[in-house]
Design a binder for these strands. Structure first.
Lengths: 340, 340
DNA sequence: CTGAAAGCGCTTACAG
DNA sequence: CTGAAAGCGCTTACAG
């Protein structure tokens, strides 16, 4: 980088001088605004590259009348959030929507993470699986528009996008029912974003399939550990369900790890269905039947909603929420119900 | 938030007016600079809270003579990076070092991620497991100081901190040797940051334990899939090693998943040692023997180095790198070498 | 402590 | 296209 010879980082003035144009024009080129000829534009970009120029986001967002960056709040320990992040990066590459990230972790609560995003003047916030209730999310965000991913929201000032759990659960239960299963256990996670939605969806699907009276539900965390515990409790009990649907793939994996070690054959003795269809489910030899969540669409729609809120060309979309279809990926962990 | 009644977000001026002090004084309070009495300070903070004031990082970092924020470049698909993120958040909470995150993913290469950090005027960059070679990292960072986590770096202008792989490998190999193992396979990952270091460490540890001639090495990716493939290749071969050390816990897990399904008992028939001692290794029923990486110390030292580079009270520390000790956590996947 | 002021690097509107 | 200018919300040095 020849820029290093200057002793400070190059500014638009430096690029302008190097390209022999005005500073205003450099700004026009970098904003992609009309007013620069193709040839001039190339000269400016060449000079910028030569100097190692990087446009200053702090200055840009401070000065711009409308902040276009999208703040994303995610959880460090949620693999599915990282898949969503990938998708959001893919859908903002080359746009004027830089992503600003802020993580929720043991040492950092949601309010702190959101405050961190506001400090960078984000034009909109995308919250992945937020735990807070609607009113506190609204209070935290203040005047900044909010898009929630992974659960429904009633308040109409918040946009949301999530997988169609009703559809997904129905696909899972119908699949099991077709295989002859009636005694189905659902490992719920009421604490998670979308946890209550998914539980309701399970009850609805059981009713629709006429097995409401033979299904059971257990509640807990959304980790492998929780699945493992559930397996132990199952094995200690008198009547085994013939199939288990887990809140997510991680819970299903933990469950299967214990079952297999204890000599319970999957799916011969018990069928297992995961949720997410993450890498966990897809890999050999796990090959788990799982409800596929379309992370790519979730991410794309979240970005689109945020972008619409930032540039309100039209009144807010109605409805304010989107359900993304799921589909069931049948692999090797589901089979005919055993007769017992 | 009573601030929402203003129609725009509150600034320091608004807080000053509400608290009945000057704007300069509000700045002093928020910077923690000397010049404000305890009582005034409380009045300012109360007014700020009342208004829902969040200090504008864009303006702060634009104006401040020295940018104090730390840019962190991480990979979305690396669980260990998220543990490091947790640690870095914990060690910057309450300091004047806000973290700015930028992810590397399929859709976003390292150069783009680093440029993203520079755009926010970070005072220093912390790169988690960067893949680029030293010269390109230096070129990308320009004048911004760089701290690399997860591998050694020769260039003395870059600080680094990583686990002592030499120690960790020696702990793993010595443990196996004590149990009578000689035929040890190492599943390497030369492409990963620190991969070559760890491979060299394995060879050194084998030599120190007098088993150089009976060990083998296979190379590949750092995923469960890769471990599963390795297990299949092992089972197809004529002579099984009596123990496997994996590049990380994920590879070890994939390996064990196949072994257990094929009726190969761990550790009776084959011992398995992971690396990282992540949640994967710790959970029941996996309970994997693994080389523990001290993520908390790695994160703390990375933050300390970055902070030192931002506020150079003393000349750069010598040496510019730190090796963090590992320790071996013995669980249930290692045992006496089988006689065959 | 106050108050007035300069300036970080941009965006934006404006006269030419 | 240029060039001069204002201003985003802060930090910082300064006179009182």
């Amino acid at each position: 980088m020849s820029g290093s010879s200057m002793g400070r980082r190059p500014t638009m003035r430096d690029v302008a001088r190097a390209a022999g144009v005005s500073q205003s024009l450099v700004s026009i080129v970098f904003r992609g605004a009309p007013g620069a000829g193709a040839q001039t534009r190339d000269r400016v970009l060449a000079a910028a590259r030569e100097l190692g120029y990087v446009r200053d986001e702090s200055a840009r967002s401070l000065r711009a009348s409308q902040s276009t960056s999208i703040g994303v709040c995610f959880q460090t320990r949620q693999p599915f959030h990282h898949v969503l992040l990938d998708g959001m990066y893919a859908h903002t590459a080359g746009t004027n929507h830089p992503l600003v990230l802020s993580a929720v972790s043991d040492a950092r609560d949601e309010a702190t993470a959101i405050r961190g995003l506001l400090a960078y003047r984000c034009g909109a916030l995308v919250l992945l699986g937020p735990r807070g209730d609607e009113q506190s999310l609204l209070a935290m965000a203040g005047d900044t528009p909010v898009v929630v991913v992974g659960r429904r929201v009633d308040d109409r000032s918040i946009d949301w996008v999530t997988s169609d759990d009703g559809l997904g659960m129905d696909q899972a239960v119908t699949h099991l029912r077709t295989l002859g299963h009636r005694r189905v256990l659902y490992l719920s996670c009421s604490r998670a974003a979308g946890g209550p939605d998914r539980l309701q969806a399970f009850h609805d699907a059981a009713a629709a399939n006429g097995i409401s009276r033979s299904v059971t539900v257990a509640d807990g965390e959304m980790t492998e550990q929780r699945g493992a515990r559930a397996a132990e409790r199952l094995l200690a009990g008198s009547i085994l369900p013939t199939a288990v649907i887990a809140f997510n793939d991680r819970v299903a994996l933990g469950l299967m790890e214990v079952l297999i070690r204890r000599g319970v054959a999957v799916p011969k003795d018990i069928s297992v269905v995961g949720f997410d269809d993450s890498e966990i489910a897809q890999r050999d030899p796990v090959l788990m039947t799982s409800v596929h969540q379309d992370a790519e669409s979730l991410a794309r729609i979240a970005v689109e909603r945020a972008s619409q809120r930032i540039h309100p060309s039209s009144p807010p979309t109605d409805p304010h929420g989107t359900l993304v279809p799921t589909h069931l990926v049948v692999r090797s962990t589901t089979g005919e119900a055993p007769r017992r």
